[in-house]
Amino acid sequence: MTRYIMPVLMGFALLLNSGAQAQSLTEVRTKLQVALQRSLSRAMVDGALPHLDLETGEITKLYPTENHEVILRMNDIYVLCATLVTADGTESTVEYYIAQNRGSYGVIRTEIDNHAPIQSLIAAGKAIRLE
Rank of each mutant, 00 (worst) to 15 (best):
F12Q: 11
L36G: 01
L14R: 01
K31A: 11
N67P: 00
R3V: 10
T56L: 11
T65K: 12
A22S: 10
N67I: 03
S41I: 01
A22N: 12
A43S: 15
G47P: 07
I59P: 04
P7F: 03
Y63E: 02
G19D: 06
D53E: 08
P7S: 08
Y63S: 02
R38W: 03
Q23M: 09
L40C: 04
L9I: 15
L15N: 00
S39C: 06
T2G: 02
L49K: 05
G11S: 15
M6P: 01
A22H: 12
E27W: 08
L36Y: 01
L52P: 04
V28R: 11
S24L: 12
M6V: 15
L54W: 05
L54E: 14
L49F: 00
T2K: 13
D53M: 05
Q21N: 14
S18N: 13
A22M: 14
A13T: 15
M1H: 13
A20W: 09
M44S: 03
L36T: 01
M6D: 02
M1A: 15
R38I: 02
L15W: 11
V45G: 01
Q21S: 11
R29D: 07
L40K: 03
L54Q: 12
K61Y: 10
F12A: 15
P50F: 04
I59A: 09
P64M: 08
A22P: 00
L15S: 10
Q37I: 03
R3M: 02
A13L: 15
L62C: 07
R38C: 05
R3C: 00
L49Y: 04
